[in-house]
Every structure is written in structure tokens, then in C-alpha cells.
Design a protein around this nucleic acid. Structure first.
Lengths: 135, 135
DNA sequence: AAAATAGTTCAATAACTATTGATCTATCAA
DNA sequence: TTGATAGATCAATAGTTATTGAACTATTTT
């Protein structure tokens, strides 16, 4: 009773949704300026203006990138309690931890199976091997 | 004596090159179909045809995505020794391990500093705090 | 030599996105 | 109320890229 998609052939569909989410977040992070923004947020920088100063980018562009980071759930927003004009951005620790976990699980070297061609001449050889024939 | 870039302000420039490389690889991985290809490669699937079958994609499109994965160094290519028409793709274990290390280092939750606004009203408060004034 | 096989490369298109400049909102200060 | 401040949103543009279809290369088979 899995969440049905179309092409369920070799892949365990279980991971389907997780893959979509992982792709979304990696896509958001796969942009140098956004990665630098994350780096700055990691260091405690929080307002649009200072991010812009540090990166030499216009505030509206910073705003744009922060938005995409927000949309994938990696960044949180907060208004200043004293002066509501200021908006503070910060990394969502939980989301980041979850991403780290998903990434580590997905790319765990231990999960990489040895060569296992299922087609081509070497594929047939391996298949013989699997049946129980010695190499 | 760091590799000089323009806007060296808040960021340690040391990480600059690493960030560019990390962004390149994350960008390559930030696409659902490519992520699924990686997933299949991880399971040992290796030829264009079977990847295409599993994902319901045309061979030329598989070729395209494999190329971008190759270009960021995550995937290796090898021709069949018996029948040179077959080309086997596989994950570059070392590159993947390196990426995993870089990713974990970059997003290590322990590296995320506490709120530290340097601008805005709360920023001044914190600055006072740093000078030695009690909250 | 001719046909089939496995896959790549090329050209075109449609969708997306980073960047820029201008405008707009909300809030605080004078 | 007027002006300044912090930032978001809008519109336009340029560059990028996923996808498709056709043509091409290399290799093996008949």
C-alpha cells in the first residue's frame, strides 16, 4: 500500500516523496549566493542589509534569495520587537538537521552497492554468477 | 595571504572555493530526475538503457543528466571490455565521500551560532552586551 | 557490406530563474 | 504630517536548462 506513482520499476517508491523534498532543498542550496547567505546566517548575521553589505548585493536580490530559502523551509523570519522595520532571518535548526540526516542517509557510501550490471555482456556474466556459477 | 576575492567582509575567504564547488555539486543534485539516477546508480544499475527504462525517460535525456553528473565529478564512465557499445556509469565513491564531508561540515548544526544581530535595535543591545555591559 | 545496437550530440523550444531598476508597504523619527 | 528607514514586491530582461526529436558515431552482428 505504497503512495503510487507511475514508473515503479526498480526504485522503492517509499523514498519518492523524500527524494522530491531533498531535490527541492538541494536545488535551493545549489546556488553560490544562497550558499553564502546560509554561511552568513550560520555565523549569526541576520538582517537583509548586512547580508547585502557582506555579499555586495542589492537588498531586493537578498530578499529574493531569502525567499527561496524560506520556501524550502531552511530559513525562518522574525520581526524585531522594538523596531518592527527590522526583519531577522535565521537558519531553521530542525530543518537543517533533518536535511543533514536525509542527505547522509541518501549518500551514505555504505549504501553504494558494488558493480551490478543488469544489461550488456558483463550483465549476463554477473547474472550467471548470481545463479551460483563460479567466476 | 588568502586567495583574494572582492567582498571580503564577514566571510572567511578560505571557504570561497569550497563553496563554489559545493554549490556546483548541489545544483547538479538538486534535480529530481538526477537524484533518482543517483539512487539507481547507488543500487548498481549502470547502463543508459536500464536507467531510461526505470525512469521512463528517453536515452538522450538520460545521457544529458548523466553528463551533468559527470561534469561535477560525481559519476564515472567506463566502456564494456567485451562489447564496447555498452557504457557503464557508476558513482565516484571518493567524490561522494568528499561531498558528504563538505556538506556535513558546512551544515553542521554545532556550527550554527546563536542569534547575533549586528544591526537593528536588538543589534545595539547585543553590542553593549559584548562590550561588557550586563543585560 | 548492410543492418542492428547503444548511446551521444545537435538544434529547437519551453520553462525557469538570477539580476536589475522601479515602485510599494510598513514603521519609526522629527 | 513629512521624511527617512528597512525591506518586500512588481515588471522586465538575460541567461540557463530540462525536454523533445532528429541526426550522428561507434561497434557489433548477419
Amino acid at each position: 500500500m505504497q503512495p503510487t506513482t507511475q514508473e515503479t520499476n526498480q526504485i522503492d517508491t517509499q523514498e519518492g516523496v523524500a527524494i522530491a523534498q531533498l531535490a527541492r532543498q538541494l536545488k535551493a542550496l545549489g546556488e553560490p549566493n544562497r550558499l553564502r547567505i546560509v554561511q552568513l546566517l550560520r555565523e549569526g548575521v541576520q538582517c537583509n542589509c548586512e547580508l547585502g553589505d557582506a555579499l555586495g548585493m542589492a537588498p531586493n536580490l537578498i530578499s529574493h534569495h531569502l525567499r527561496t530559502l524560506r520556501e524550502v523551509g531552511l530559513v525562518e523570519v522574525e520581526r524585531d520587537a522594538v523596531d518592527a522595520r527590522w526583519i531577522y532571518y535565521s537558519l531553521d535548526r530542525d530543518a537543517l538537521a533533518a536535511l543533514l540526516g536525509a542527505f547522509d542517509a541518501f549518500f551514505d557510501p555504505a549504501r553504494i552497492k558494488e558493480r551490478h550490471p543488469a544489461c550488456g555482456p558483463q550483465g549476463s556474466l554477473v547474472r550467471l554468477d548470481e545463479i551460483g556459477v563460479a567466476a
